[in-house]
């Protein structure tokens, strides 16, 4: 029964606001939060780079969902796909256009009415990367699936990837199950890119249901599968055991 009391709202969530915070406000927020989890607010919410906590442990940023605000409209899917997997026509990519089925964020809809958007949880123990059987490159020490760039994003080296699907299974078994095999190539897809630091889903969510947060494993629903989240929300909202 304890479950029923877990808040569905991330207490310290930073939904985007219509104006950017001033530097002072930003520092204030950090101060109030005591090393707050609030990364930032502001219209074009930029993601700051990963930082070291001092314990040597990396903490990443991920797209967190406030399920009490999400209406299941799938605007996030539409704008994600338009940025990350845009339509390719006439020799050019067409941003603003794309089929939501190719998005890196995926809204799972259930009956009774519950919608659960899911995106890469940025797991600190990276089960997907660790499951990759491709021998690490002697120079870079990278498997086919590895972390790269400013935000340590999960990246696939499609030249070396053998399309075995281990990463997809690992994600499903021990995390949210967002990764999926490309039907044509069997290689993994739906790795969140954080849109180069300016997540489109956040910018366009009409309900301010999405935030960029630093990973905290104590978050309710963190790393749970959409089915499990739906079950909990069903119980919480409709008092139903489905």
């Amino acid at each position: 029964m304890e479950d029923n009391k877990t808040p569905e709202v991330y207490r310290k969530s930073s939904t985007h606001e219509k104006r950017a915070l001033t530097r002072r406000e930003f520092i204030m927020k950090l101060a109030i939060g005591g090393g707050s989890l609030v990364l930032l607010a502001g219209c074009g919410a930029k993601v700051t780079s990963v930082f070291d906590t001092g314990s040597g442990k990396q903490i990443y940023s991920f797209i967190a969902v406030d399920y009490s605000k999400c209406t299941g409209c799938r605007t996030c899917e539409a704008v994600c796909t338009a940025y990350n997997n845009p339509l390719f026509r006439d020799g050019r990519y067409k941003s603003d256009l794309g089929n939501p089925v190719h998005a890196n964020i995926r809204v799972h809809s259930f009956n009774p009415d519950v919608d659960v958007p899911v995106t890469c949880a940025r797991c600190d123990d990276i089960p997907c990367v660790n499951s990759c059987p491709v021998k690490p490159d002697p120079v870079t020490n990278r498997r086919a699936l590895y972390q790269s760039g400013k935000y340590d994003l999960i990246t696939n080296d499609t030249d070396r990837c053998i399309g075995c699907g281990n990463c997809v299974s690992a994600c499903a078994d021990s995390s949210v199950g967002i990764l999926s095999q490309n039907p044509a190539t069997n290689k993994p897809m739906r790795m969140c890119t954080l849109c180069g630091g300016d997540p489109k889903c956040l910018e366009h969510c009409p309900y301010e249901a999405l935030s960029v947060l630093r990973v905290d494993t104590a978050y309710p629903y963190y790393r749970m599968s959409p089915e499990d989240i739906a079950e909990k929300l069903n119980k919480r909202w409709y008092n139903l055991n489905v």
Binding site: T71, C73, D113, V114, D115, P206, W237, Y238, N239
Partner: peptide, 21 residues
């Protein structure tokens, strides 16, 4: 009512779902 929900890409969310308690 416990939640508001919306159609594809709609910012208005005029639908409400609820439970008889």
């Amino acid at each position: 009512w416990v939640r508001d929900f919306a159609c594809y890409c709609c910012p208005l969310a005029c639908k409400k779902s609820g439970a008889v308690k």
